[in-house]
């Protein structure tokens, strides 16, 4: 079990819900027909998604132990399978399922 108390769960979920709501409500509160969104905010809305996704991929592999092949190989092979399959077929669920299956298979084979 995770070591968090109910209140710690509530605080983390509440903080994330608040942050998410901020990104959704801000344009409706701050901008309107006669007050268009600042160019800088519009620019961030376009440029940040790619940057945030790139950051999150690094976040996903932050725990990989680069001195052990049994840790690096399954992770990066499965990422390549996921990405390659997605470029090829563009089917989200297929790419995710196949990539995860490859990973599970590899970590159970390489020990």
């Amino acid at each position: 079990m995770s070591g968090f108390t109910i209140w710690q769960y509530a605080a983390v979920i509440g903080a994330a819900a608040l942050g998410t709501m901020l990104t959704r409500f801000l344009p409706f509160i701050a901008f309107g027909r006669d007050k268009p969104a600042p160019k800088y905010i519009q620019y961030l809305g376009k440029a940040l998604p790619g940057a945030a996704l790139g950051l999150l991929i690094v976040y996903c592999v932050r725990g990989v132990d680069y001195s052990a092949l049994s840790s690096t190989l399954p992770t990066f092979a499965a990422i390549l399978v996921t990405a390659g399959l997605h470029v090829w077929k563009r089917k989200m669920l297929l790419s995710i399922a196949a990539g995860t299956a490859v990973y599970i298979l590899l970590i159970n084979l390489i020990h």
Binding site: C60, I79, T82, H86, S95, G99
Partner: peptide
Amino acid sequence: TALLTVLFVEN
């Protein structure tokens, strides 16, 4: 990881 890879590639 797979979900984020797909979202990143799609983007």
